[in-house]
Amino acid sequence: MAERVGRFTVKMSKKPSIIGFAASGGKKEKSGPIGDLLDKSFDDDLLGQDSWEQAESALLCNSISLALKKAELKNDQADVIFAGDLLDQSMSSTFGLKQFRIPTVGLFGACSTMALSLSQAALAVDSGWANVAVAATSSHFCSAERQFRFPLEYGGRRTPNSQWTVTGSGATVVGFESRESAPKIDSVCIGRIADLGVTDANNMGAAMAPAAADTIKNFLTDTGTTPDDYDLILTGDLGEIGSRLLQDLLERDGIMLKNNYDDCGLLIFDKDSEVGAGGSGCGCSATVLCAKILPEICKGKLGRVLFVATGALMSPKSAQQGLSIPAVAHAVLITS
């Protein structure tokens, strides 16, 4: 049974494994630094669907099918799916999951969903109420623009601090496996909502950095470790500005992030004027984790990875009402 360590962290007793994982992405992601690592990429951002939301559903569906296939499981062998996305009523998850006929738990954690769903899947398997649990999420540039910003063809200018929503999806299958190489989930830390008054929706990294700092600090305190104890501390989508702020904030508490720190938002795209401060969206951390990080753990290149996905929890309504952007970050320690 999972056990609480310190105030915020939960340690798995049976160390569930990630027995299957897959990532799919769109055209821009394909041409980026992790393009060749994606299990599947699509040149048509609509994926042959009628709308961007349906295209996002298709992406999610694709990743989950591939992940289950890689885990050598049939659809009906999974006991539960944890999934969520950025859209109203989690539209893309709901429509992407309905064909699987697997018991489903919908989650909302904005761009932190990958860590949130993975933590829930790990807890479900560790506590024994599921033998196999799927954790997945997705985002699509076009559907996110529609949800939060202006129409795609509207002649607006992107500010240098804005981030580019990743068109992509990642899925992991958590269970028990005898294969030694499968990545294991050691412990999870569910984050607190942090809000330091950032109202600029074009500077999400700044809004999320305090949440990431809080969760990382809590995790390190609870486990009595320092950043040097990890091969990689990987945040979700803080981008250029958020990463800078995170390092500054942690330094104030005497926690120094060094070369073993990176951010998925900085890994997924080549830097150009369109991308701004980096990638963002649920799919950002999900695709980088499933396409790059987990394979490296399997190969033994990475041993202990603290995966901290960050989410800005604003809604279009809260932004219109002038409220500041609350953020959350969840941490999952994945080991080889």
Partner: peptide, 10 residues
């Protein structure tokens, strides 16, 4: 934090 953000932003 607002000051920190301003300093860190492009």
């Amino acid at each position: 934090y607002k000051k920190l953000t301003k300093k860190a932003s492009n």
